[in-house]
Design a protein around this nucleic acid. Structure first.
Lengths: 231, 231
DNA sequence: AAAATAAATTGCTTTATATCAATTTTGTTT
DNA sequence: AAACAAAATTGATATAAAGCAATTTATTTT
């Protein structure tokens, strides 16, 4: 299931897109390069489970993954992770446990970096530490927006928010190919999948968007934005 | 309204309870001591507003405060802050803006520490940086629990969660004196104040808790725990 | 290609929860 | 103490959203 390939490329090549490593020196990058695994996951496979130890910092290098909290009978997707992005859970500095699960939505490849090395670099390189804190902060801010959407907007507004998230932040195009399931859409917007499907149907009937197969296109961005804002 | 008292005591005395400053040297503490204001707020007064610049790290030294997101027509209280605890928003490392508001629930005193000094210490002292990251992480974990409670539990479970939060984490006693309003209770549990009041009434009728005046006492912890867990 | 499985869709029914309006209680000001 | 304002409480009503069951459409597997 897990196919380990050591050092298939080096970090200096790989990370030109990955701003969190920009603050590292060649020597520091080399240290990371020597302490990482490359792994691939098939769509649907679990990358790590909530509650388990967290020895690696996971970097998604291709495909699409989701991080989600397993709650009371259903899941809440906190975010989708695309290349080149990182999964750093809050447990790393608390009890070394994962506080959410991660799974591949599309086939994925990932680099796993030893958390001990990572923490060592945080201590030794203040620029890297600041960049890390900055990213944790950005994640917090995103979560704030999400929790307000989930707790204060009704279903139409929440689905609108998720569609913008997919179009603007994840697939970064319009039209885009929805590689996530309806259940995932529901888990992103905190509702039942039946409700998510119904809202989508209404949006189609009102000409706000179209779908054909897995491709979705937003037609009336303005109206969708208004639905997002009026809740 | 804001009564500034400089250096009424020194940080070395004050912070014996405040674990985040344990990792600082005498010299570093002195630096903080020389760059702080002491301020008092009356109950109801706003400490800072969401969207405004964030030049200070706020430490609550007496009283009780709340941090809350101003959402679509209503507020969501993220946490109550009691002495000695700190308010550090994610904006400090992003755009120096507050992403939530803070207000005094009871009369409060607070120390305001210059963010520039704070960030300087983060860069210079890896122990302090790690402790800071650890605290940000703990806050994230708390928010995860909260978002699951808010999005996946029904009203009874959410009120139960908030009552445990008040009893175990904030007032740290049972019975305890509720210094927060019913509206605050509602804003903590993501529902209307009418609903919050109704649930409380049901709990009283079932003998789970009693209230007299502002004093609340949990009588049947086991049953309340079960309500929390079954959602 | 057929069969089997999983995912998506739809309609119907129930329920959780908000909203509105009225009333009571509590706290504050004069 | 009286008058006022604010907060808490209660009941009645409307509605958003979940749950269930049945059906259709995709996707695997044989």
């Amino acid at each position: 299931m897990i196919n380990k390939i050591h050092h298939s490329s080096n970090c200096a090549d790989c990370n030109f897109k990955a701003s969190i490593f920009n603050s590292l020196s060649t020597v520091e990058l080399e240290l990371i390069n020597n302490n990482r695994f490359q792994v691939s996951y098939k769509a649907g496979e679990i990358i790590f489970k909530q509650g388990t130890p967290s020895p690696y910092f996971v970097c998604i290098t291709s495909g699409l993954a989701k991080i989600y909290i397993e709650g009371y009978g259903k899941n809440l997707i906190l975010a989708l992770i695309k290349p080149i992005d990182y999964i750093f859970g809050p447990g790393i500095y608390v009890d070394n446990r994962h506080y959410y699960s991660a799974a591949a939505v599309e086939d994925c490849t990932a680099c796993l970096v030893d958390v001990v090395i990572f923490k060592k670099l945080i201590r030794e390189n203040p620029d890297f530490a600041e960049e890390f804190i900055r990213r944790v902060s950005l994640q917090s801010i995103f979560n704030f927006d999400q929790v307000i959407s989930l707790t204060q907007k009704q279903m139409h507004g929440r689905i609108a928010d998720v569609i913008f998230y997919l179009s603007d932040k994840i697939y970064c195009q319009n039209p885009f190919e929805m590689t996530i399931s309806r259940q995932d859409l529901a888990d992103l917007s905190g509702m039942s999948k039946e409700s998510a499907i119904r809202i989508l149907k209404e949006f189609k009937e009102e000409g706000i968007l179209t779908t054909s197969g897995n491709t979705m296109e937003i037609w009336n961005t303005k109206q969708l934005r208004q639905i997002s804002e009026t809740g």
